[in-house]
Design a binder for these strands. Structure first.
Lengths: 196, 196
DNA sequence: TTATTTTAATTGAACGGTCAATTAATAAAA
DNA sequence: TTTTATTAATTGACCGTTCAATTAAAATAA
């Protein structure tokens, strides 16, 4: 079985298995065994590639954050108006779910854990600030700076809040779509209320 | 030490100790030992009064939910306008923090756990729906029903979102106050945008 | 090519520690 | 004495980590 160049493959397998396990049984009940069994690998391999359970958890969060980041970057690659950009931001933050229900529960678990884990909290802070500054950047092209900062705070709160309530209520895909629409419409209203 | 009628006292002691433990070390690291030690009692007493750790966790969540509920009821006891009532709802949902920082982290932990615990999810659902219907009830006196429902969804999202972002960023009391102000102002704008 | 050595990849049993729960004993109050 | 409240000790299951042993691909030598 030992083939050369297995590392990136195994790392991804284990990260995927972690997402599955956390989604199915929760971060609390996720063990080295529940992960390695899902990946079809032995338990020892986790320490070998990630230094331990904690390292794998953190790598999994980084994977989720990176997905969100690149999802937004790819959408805003081509030139677009500030309003379009704002809509892309909303879409990116909601799309985390549609593609994979497993990510959703995982995200929530990690948020909670970040209150007691410095590493995770650092990652969470970067993510929260990115949403805010992405929004603020686009709003600034449409209104005075102070208004833009305020709009970004409100929009970020609305996006996270509607997302959270949808997740916690175990909403259907249709209800998620509705939440996304509400968020988009709210961002639009923020533009028109302060726009030239 | 054995005195008669200890039950309600012990139960509250253990619930308080659970809140402290979850706030300090997280739900993950909260054990019957970390709880009982904080309460100055033995670990066996938890099974005696709550049937086990899980029973104590659920009782603690019910305690938090009940606090939020009665906090709102007491504020809206005296007659007040719909607008005042809406502000009270916002205040009640933010006041969870100010009085006790410990409750904040706890709440977040329980939300995450509720995705994998049916009992907790039931409690969470009741709470989420109460916020929505309280808001909808007041909005309905100020605007047509469909507008009111929509406003309630948006306001609930904004309240939870701003609260969540403040908690996750470990905001100072001052920043919490600012988040509360933003939420209140948003509710006001919802009123004036659809009001007569 | 074939035989041999080296190396990367992986396993899974063993270990020390901790968990929730239970039990039997104890102490005060009724 | 009986009942209630509580503890301290114990149990068995399970946790994450470690590590000696194993496997098979890759590299080298013949």
């Amino acid at each position: 079985m030992p083939k050369v160049g297995m590392e990136p493959i195994r790392r991804q397998q284990l990260i995927n298995a972690t997402l599955e396990s956390v989604a199915e049984v929760g971060l609390h009940a996720t063990t080295i065994n529940s992960i390695s069994k899902r990946a079809g690998l032995s338990s020892g391999i986790i320490s070998h590639y990630f230094g331990g359970k904690q390292g794998l958890i953190e790598a999994t969060v980084r994977f989720l954050l990176n997905n969100l980041k690149t999802s937004l970057i790819s959408k805003t690659q081509q030139p677009c108006s500030a309003e379009e950009r704002l809509m892309f931001i909303v879409e990116a933050n909601f799309s985390v779910i549609q593609q994979q229900t497993s990510s959703t529960k995982t995200w929530l678990s990690f948020w909670a854990q970040s209150m007691h884990d410095e590493q995770l909290h650092r990652l969470q802070t970067v993510n929260a600030k990115r949403l805010y500054s992405n929004l603020a950047f686009s709003f600034k092209t449409l209104m005075p700076e102070n208004d833009a900062k305020r709009a970004a705070k409100l929009a970020a709160g609305m996006i996270d809040g509607l997302w959270l309530r949808a997740v916690l209520s175990k909403a259907t895909e249709q209800e998620f779509k509705q939440a996304e629409q509400l968020a988009k419409h709210y961002v639009s209203s923020l533009i028109s209320s302060c726009g030239a």
